[in-house]
């Protein structure tokens, strides 16, 4: 019996209310969740969107995060006693509000607001990626700021005492050390971001969970598509965790004794 035929026969029996063996039922549900009409390709499409969304949101988050963190650190590190730079003060205040608002409201709500209140566009996937990037930027900026603050103050002093300017000292001395220190936290943020792309489904962003739910709805059977999607997320996260571990080991080169 060819696979499609088996599916159709058993499915017909199931619909008519007849009792099937557990493995026959499993086969029917599995087949309709993944194989019927090449549905596995929809999951792949979903994974592609999920990865794209993660990459774009991460890029946006890191750019935004570095910008916010550097401005805020520069503001906090101004020489005491001197007149503060007013532009820096204003930008710092704006960034502080940004971080507070983004971290203080649920991400799902932010996505709904971006999609249905601010943009009102049909490009839901792109709007969702934008929302994710903005959200991630707030968290990444705090991670980076923490990393910059954690570098021993003597490093900045040593750099400046040699006659290097602030930017060079940050670029060659402080930032590389901060980056190494925050890599685990940044990796964690990346993994959270990867999983949070599933929230795009609430604004019809066409990522993995969106397709899984659509297939489940069509079949009147949610378990197989949802568990399938969960397995795919798990595998993706495990792959990235492994890659991050490798990167961390490479960064530890200068620690060897």
């Amino acid at each position: 019996m060819d696979p499609l035929q088996a599916y159709e026969t058993w499915k017909a029996l199931m619909v008519s209310g007849e009792a099937l063996a557990w493995w026959q039922e499993f086969y029917v549900k599995f087949y309709q969740a993944f194989l019927l009409e090449n549905r596995w390709m929809q999951y792949l499409d979903g994974v592609a969107t999920t990865l794209l969304a993660t990459a774009l949101a991460l890029l946006m988050g890191v750019v935004l995060g570095v910008l916010v963190a550097v401005i805020r650190a520069a503001h906090d590190q101004q020489r005491p006693g001197r007149r503060k730079n007013p532009v820096l003060g204003l930008v710092n205040a704006v960034f502080k509000v940004y971080v507070t608002v983004i971290r203080g409201t649920p991400m799902m709500l932010q996505l709904l607001i971006w999609a249905f209140v601010v943009f009102k566009s049909r490009q839901y996937t792109m709007v969702g990626i934008f929302g994710l990037g903005i959200n991630s930027g707030a968290y990444v900026s705090e991670i980076i700021r923490g990393g910059l603050m954690a570098v021993d103050g003597g490093q900045m002093e040593a750099g400046r005492s040699l006659g290097l300017n602030y930017v060079d000292t940050m670029r060659f001395i402080v930032v590389p050390q901060a980056f190494k220190a925050i890599l685990p936290a940044l990796g964690n943020e990346f993994i959270i971001l990867l999983k949070d792309t599933s929230l795009l489904s609430v604004i019809s962003g066409q990522e993995l969970l969106y397709f899984a739910q659509a297939i489940g709805t069509r079949n009147y059977e949610q378990m197989f598509p949802l568990i399938g999607a969960a397995c795919i997320y798990l595998v993706l996260v495990m792959i990235f965790t492994w890659l991050l571990g490798k990167l961390e080991r490479r960064m530890r080169q200068s620690d060897r004794r």
Binding site: G154, A158, G159, I173
Partner: peptide, 26 residues
């Protein structure tokens, strides 16, 4: 500062660079 060298109690070498790079950076 380029004309005034300073040596610190806690050395403050740059741990992310080789010794050569520590010396030649500035």
């Amino acid at each position: 500062r380029q004309q005034m060298g300073m040596v610190f109690q806690h050395f403050n070498l740059f741990p992310n660079m080789t010794i050569r790079k520590n010396i030649t950076l500035a």
